[in-house]
Amino acid sequence: MWTSVIIAVGVLLALSAIFGALLGFAADRFRVEGNALVDDIDALLPQTQCGQCGYPGCRPYAEAIADGDAINKCPPGGDSAIAALADLLDVEPQPLDAEHGVAQARRVAVIREDECIGCTKCIQACPVDAILGAAKHMHTVIEQECTGCDLCVEPCPVDCIDMITVDTDIRNWLPPEPALIATDRRPSLTQARNERPEASLP
């Protein structure tokens, strides 16, 4: 009788040793560097690096969200970013926190070049290196690289930077959405999850 008990215990011990070793090896061999969730969150943020969320850039905010911060602090991302984050993290979407600003159309910074004194302060403030220039030389903004974050406006000692809303032309024009009809019920962002059966279209 004792022999069978010893055999059973021995077999279980051997199995646990084997699997333990396997798991230990796998944990070491297939280790993921960094937090994969932060990367996923960062991919959904608009990368304006504007700091309106209170963090110095999008990645720090992504890290904060991964640690449990609210997802509604990003005005440039707007409702679509909040919806995408809520989807990813499986939490309730919330309306944008107005404390951090409001969603705006895309803007770019433009330097009034004849007023620029070449102080390089805006260059140091730009989070994406989109301003070109050197000390005591005129600076200019590379329009394609500008995220419209506003961060260069404040440091300018002569106030020569304007934020210009990007005009709609035939190349970036968005065909208008047809009007809703009387029987339509457009689910609002928060309703979408709470009242799904009723709010979504039939």
């Binding site: 690096q49 994406v128 690289e145 995220t147």
Partner: peptide, 8 residues
């Protein structure tokens, strides 16, 4: 956004 992230 990807371009801005890369530059940032």
């Amino acid at each position: 956004a990807d371009q801005a992230r890369e530059r940032f």
